[in-house]
C-alpha cells in the first residue's frame, strides 16, 4: 500500500517534460507586486505543496494557472487539462450532485457524462449522494464532490486551493487519505495551496515556500507514504519550513537536518 502511494514521477526518467512550466511570471495589482519573476516546474504526477503566508501570491498563482487571470509578464504553460477544487466547494446549489460533477466534463454525450460523474462519485465514496441537492451535503461530503468534479475530466494538473482548511480535523485526515488514493489512481500533477505545514509534509513530494511573489524555499520529501508527523525526518523538515515562513516557536527551535535533498532557491 505504502509503495503504491509513492510518487509516480519517481519511476519516470528525468527527461519527461514538466506538466507545469512557469517562467518569469509577474503579476501586479496597482503598485502591489504579487508575483515577481516566478519560476516553477511541476513534473508529471508530482504532488507539490505551495506554502506561504497570506499575500505571498499563492492564490494569484493558482488563478493564473487556472486561466482565471492573465499575467503581466512571463509565461505559465500547462500540459493537459487543468482543473480546480476550491476552498469552498462551490458546487452549484441548483444542480444535483451528479450534475455538478458532470459539469467538470466538457466532452461526450449527456449519458456518458452522467455515467462518468457517478463513477467518480463512487471513487470518493459518494455513490448514494449522486441525486441529492448540494445543500444537504456535509462540509466533507461537499469537498469530496468538488474533488470528484475536479478529477472527472482526467486533468493533467489538479489545482487545490486550500481545499481542506474549512473542514474539521477528523474530516481533514480522511480527506488527506482520499486525496492520496485518487491521486495514485489518476496520476495527475497536483499543486496544493495550503497554510498547513503538517498537511504539506504529510502529502507532498515537494514543498515550496512562496514569499513576496517568488520561491523562497524548495524542499523535496522523498519519504514513503503514509507518513507519520512524529517521523524524525518530518519533524526536522517542519522546523525548516516554519523557519522559512518566519514562525518563531518552540517547534521551530529544533535544528534542521540535512540527510534529505534540500535546496534553497532564490
Amino acid at each position: 500500500m505504502a509503495t503504491r502511494l509513492n510518487a509516480p514521477h519517481a519511476l519516470r526518467p528525468p527527461t519527461v517534460p514538466p506538466t507545469v512550466q512557469v517562467r518569469g511570471l509577474r503579476r501586479a495589482f496597482g503598485d502591489t507586486v504579487v508575483l515577481d519573476d516566478l519560476d516553477l516546474d511541476v513534473a508529471p504526477g508530482e504532488l507539490v505543496a505551495l506554502l506561504g503566508r497570506s499575500g505571498s501570491g499563492k492564490s494569484t498563482l493558482l488563478r493564473l494557472l487556472a486561466g482565471l487571470d492573465a499575467p503581466d509578464a512571463g509565461t505559465a504553460e500547462v500540459d493537459g487539462v487543468t482543473s480546480v477544487a476550491f476552498q469552498e466547494p462551490r458546487l452549484l446549489p441548483w444542480r444535483r450532485v451528479a450534475q455538478n460533477v458532470a459539469l467538470g466534463l466538457r466532452t461526450g454525450s449527456r449519458r456518458e457524462r452522467d455515467e462518468r460523474a457517478r463513477q467518480l462519485l463512487g471513487e470518493v465514496g459518494l455513490t448514494e449522494k449522486a441525486d441529492v441537492w448540494p445543500v444537504t451535503l456535509s462540509g466533507g461530503q461537499a469537498q469530496r464532490a468538488s474533488l470528484a468534479r475536479a478529477l472527472v475530466s482526467e486533468p493533467g494538473l489538479l489545482l487545490l486551493d486550500e481545499p481542506f482548511s474549512a473542514l474539521d480535523a477528523l474530516t481533514r485526515i480522511e480527506m488527506h487519505d482520499l486525496l492520496l488514493r485518487v491521486w495514485a489512481r489518476h496520476r495527475a500533477s497536483v499543486l496544493l495551496v495550503t497554510h498547513d505545514v503538517d498537511e504539506a509534509l504529510l502529502l507532498a513530494d515537494r514543498v515550496i515556500v512562496l514569499d513576496q511573489g517568488s520561491v523562497a524555499h524548495s524542499l523535496r520529501l522523498d519519504l514513503p507514504r503514509p507518513r507519520a508527523l512524529h517521523d524524525p525526518r518530518l519533524v526536522a523538515h517542519r522546523a525548516t519550513l516554519l523557519d522559512q515562513l518566519g514562525v518563531r516557536t518552540a517547534h521551530a527551535a529544533a535544528s534542521p537536518t540535512t540527510d534529505t535533498a534540500q535546496e534553497a532557491v532564490s
Partner: peptide
Amino acid sequence: PKYLDAARAFGL
C-alpha cells in the same frame, strides 16, 4: 461571482 469563476475554471 465565485460560481462564475468555478464555471470558467471548468471551461464552461
